[in-house]
């Protein structure tokens, strides 16, 4: 991420950004990309408007044109009403929107977003997704890192699953699910400690069975049929749920369930 934004020297391999060489053309590349870092790096003492305006000046945008652009961006980020307030008292979602608006000040053709919605409430996330979706439709390329699989599913055309710095899988969300998971998942809960025993007994009913401490996951293409088969074997789970496979299943399958700190 930092290497693409020409902030860090290239540690290995080759890298071209917008057809240019990051080592040589750093300023030129950065003038055409917008960066939304994980930390907002906003100036809390300054107003919302000043933050946008100054950032535009760093790009050398002419003052008059920049003022118009700032008004557009305030509208885009739904911050027009707060434009002349300081950033300090703004909520996390507002700050995030401001940071994204700021990254757009130079009308970049590539926007890099590092975990854009981490720590936001659902309303704020959906508003952000809406704005990002709009950008995508306008032809802006978005490069996003995220830990939220629903976010990846919503926003991404192409997806790369990284595990410990290596690419574990790549493709569209649909392709990844097709390749690495089944169409549906049956989640079963049994009394007490029986999950391992039940898992062994039901193993042949699904393509793959995963035994977790609190539940049993059966990966299958026909969830309802599999659940019927489970019941006809006399197993009586206290709770059963059939759902579609998600990217989260793919991600956990590829990177494992152990905590990565």
């Amino acid at each position: 991420m930092r290497m693409i934004a020409c902030l860090s020297p290239i540690s290995g391999g080759t890298l071209q950004v917008l057809g240019l060489d990051p080592m040589r053309d750093g300023p030129q590349i950065r003038s055409r990309i917008g960066l939304v870092p994980q930390d907002d790096t906003l100036d809390l003492e300054l107003t919302v408007r000043d933050n946008l305006y100054l950032y535009g000046r760093y790009f050398g945008l002419p003052k008059k044109q920049l003022r118009e652009r700032v008004d557009e961006l305030l509208e885009f980020a739904r911050l027009t009403e707060r434009a002349d307030e300081r950033v300090d008292p703004l909520s996390g979602g507002m700050r995030r929107r401001l940071t994204i608006a700021r990254a757009l000040v130079s009308s970049p053709s590539l926007v890099i977003l590092d975990e854009p919605t981490t720590g936001l409430d659902p309303q704020a996330r959906h508003l952000l997704w809406d704005r990002l979706y709009r950008l995508k439709r306008e032809g802006v390329t978005l490069v996003i890192t995220t830990h939220y699989m629903d976010e990846a599913e919503q926003l991404c055309d192409r997806l790369v699953v990284m595990d410990a710095g290596r690419i574990a899988a790549a493709g569209s969300p649909r392709e990844l699910i097709e390749q690495w998971s089944t169409r549906e998942v049956v989640e079963l809960r049994f009394e007490a400690e029986g999950h391992q025993v039940h898992g062994d007994r039901l193993a042949d009913l699904a393509e793959r069975v995963e035994v977790l401490p609190d539940r049993l996951l059966l990966y299958t293409d026909e969830g309802d049929a599999t659940l019927d088969a489970v019941r006809s074997r006399g197993a009586s789970p206290i709770a059963a749920l059939v759902r579609r496979s998600t990217l989260e299943d793919v991600f956990l399958h590829l990177t494992g369930r152990s905590l990565v700190d």
């Binding site: 902030l7 950065r30 003038s31 960066l35 930390d39 790096t41 906003l42 100036d43 790009f59």
Partner: peptide, 11 residues
């Protein structure tokens, strides 16, 4: 405030 880093993300 990390203002330096904000500047460095620009040209």
């Amino acid at each position: 405030l990390k203002t330096y880093f904000a500047m460095l993300a620009t040209p």
